[in-house]
Amino acid sequence: MLIILKKVFFILAILLVNVYICEYINNKLTARMDLRRGYKISGAKGIGFPLVRFFKYISRSEKTNIWTFFIFLFSLLIWGVVPITANLILIEMDYSLLVALTFYIILIILLFFNSGRTSYSDAYSESGKKVLILLSFLIPALFSIASIVLINKTLSLKEIVNSQHQYWNIILQPLGFMTFFISIFLQFKLLGIRGKSYLSPGANIGKEGTGLGKIIEKFSIYMIVFFLIIILNILYLGGWQGIYIIRGEIMLAVKFYIIFVILLLMDKSLGRIDSYSMLIRINWKFLIPVSLVNFIVTFGFLIARDVYNLI
């Protein structure tokens, strides 16, 4: 029991520290790309700024509703299933990939319900459409995941990482990695981590909003992004596999931040995509066919190798 509590504490600590660092990077990096300096206030180079903003949000009371509680719950529940490192996992099961994906879908749907209840109820909101599109980006991701599962012949995330001890899956599945990455990027963009959320109405709304609900929403968006990046690491980039004398945990952190920064830079250098027809076109005419082709090729290859012993 004590071990589990210790693990929970560790997981929470890691998540909070990373959210803080990511928020800080987010502020500074995006400002630097604008040729601005970013927040200078509250501490050296604005290190205390995320904390100040947190307290500012809390200081202004606003009604929270039941959805925010569920969002908070599910955004933490994901980490019970997804291992951050080999040891930091609460529940070990054989189907952890499926369970994690289910939690993820539930979380996004909850966010949709939450965005429907904003205090600016008279404002026009397109959040329903956005969430549907966001969910539709799961389809190419699922195809890519399916081909990974076929190769590694397991549904457990831990096993997938362990089976990459020789070479990473990215070498076997470059197309799958590409589609998965683009789908992650578009989800990242739709979630609006850069301060401008797509799930709520208003142009600059990411900087707005008050109360506990706002914090939880922001936290859960970070959790989704973390989940996506960790899953990408686990599936394609070897997870917590160490290289030579470098420990696996450090490798994972390095890979995590590289991907996060790349996503941020891509997000910043492209404009807002709120032309839905275009998003749908990208998804159904590019991502889904490519990932499907990848899946079919993998499937055919495995059948040819394992069933007919051709290769």
Binding site: L35, R36, A203, K268, S269, G271
Partner: peptide, 16 residues
Amino acid sequence: ICNILQHDIAYNLSLL
């Protein structure tokens, strides 16, 4: 236009 499209880099450059 860049502000509406949220293309921040072009927005800042043009304001400069």
